[in-house]
């Protein structure tokens, strides 16, 4: 049965949306990421106006992250204190991101901003993760147990130190705040939760133990995407509640299966898979930027 989406102003078969939501939700539960970096481009490829795709994806990420976060919370795999600190940075970043979004759209360079930031970010993050997880897999095979490296970096010289018990860390609040801020900006301009940035940042920069990383990142994503949804609804009127509802119903179910499968896989394998996925999307978008388009012209409805 086809369903008419009131804000996107198009009709779509409801099974397609539920299936799409389930697939993205599965990945979300598996990797502890929101899945927005996949869902936003997919919706746009499907014909949903990009403003609606970006804004509606936020609410989908909220829902699939909640079921994931609760699953992690039950296993005590969540650092609430760290999550709150990062969410504070994230809220500031969302405000900043929406301002940047409006500014770039007025300049007519929104598409370029979105595509290049996707390519740069996914390329960098995916490359780093691929490198790291391959190295980890190799050292495991050699029989060497990877020790928790406690290195003294510049981060330890920063003020406002705080103890994060679940993460077994005593560090300054500035790095988690800054990571939150950066991810908040991404959330607003790219329609992503930012898990693919938070997860590596927590592992490689903050040196958090891998088991609390997933739950904590999901917690911060929930706060930031909920704020983004409300901000997009009030400034751009571009949140489609019907589209969101169908994607979410598929998404929350998929996320539950994702968490279960993820618990059975080893951390290095998970990171390798995520790295490959992130790189694949990045390459796809890079191809779109570099290849000569079939039609050089594009049209944009509305405006003055």
């Amino acid at each position: 049965m086809e369903i008419y989406l009131p804000i996107a102003e198009m009709s779509v078969h409801w099974l397609i949306l539920i299936g799409l939501g389930a697939a993205i939700g599965f990945l979300s539960g598996l990797f502890g990421v929101g899945g927005g970096f996949l869902l936003t481009p997919l919706l746009i490829f499907y014909g949903v106006p990009s403003a609606v795709a970006v804004a509606t994806t936020s609410s989908h990420i909220t829902a699939s992250s909640i079921s994931g976060a609760i699953a992690h919370w039950r296993k005590r795999a969540l650092d609430l204190k760290m999550g709150v600190v990062m969410a504070i940075g994230g809220l500031a970043g969302t405000g900043l991101g929406v301002w940047l979004f409006t500014y770039m759209r007025r300049q007519g360079q929104m598409d370029l901003l979105v595509s290049t930031s996707y390519v740069l970010l996914l390329g960098t993050v995916g490359g780093l993760m691929l490198n790291e997880s391959l190295a980890a897999l190799r050292s495991n095979r050699d029989g060497a147990t990877p020790s928790r490296r406690v290195q003294h970096t510049w981060m330890h010289g920063l003020p406002f130190k705080m103890r994060f018990r679940e993460s077994r860390l005593y560090i300054s609040v500035i790095p988690p705040l800054a990571i939150g801020l950066f991810v908040g900006i991404l959330s607003a301009i790219m329609g992503v939760g930012g898990g693919f940035v938070i997860v590596p940042a927590m592992i490689y920069m903050l040196r958090m133990p891998t088991n609390v990383v997933m739950g904590t990142s999901l917690f911060q994503i929930i706060i930031v995407t909920a704020a983004t949804t409300i901000l997009q609804a009030t400034t751009n009127f571009s949140v489609d509640i019907m589209l969101a509802g169908l994607l979410i119903i598929g998404g929350v179910v998929g996320a539950q299966f994702g968490v279960r499968v993820g618990a059975r896989l080893r951390g290095e394998q998970l990171r390798l898979l995520l790295a490959l996925l992130v790189l694949a999307v990045g390459v796809r978008l890079l191809v779109g930027l570099v290849l000569r388009p079939d039609d050089l012209f594009s049209i944009q409805m509305g405006g003055q």
């Binding site: 609410s59 909220t62 829902a63 909920a226 949804t229 009030t234 979410i248 119903i249 929350v252």
Partner: peptide, 16 residues
């Protein structure tokens, strides 16, 4: 916007 977020939270929690 608040309703959309509420719906998302409830559906996520319900599935859990």
């Amino acid at each position: 916007g608040l309703s959309t977020v509420l719906m998302a939270v409830l559906l996520g929690w319900l599935s859990s």
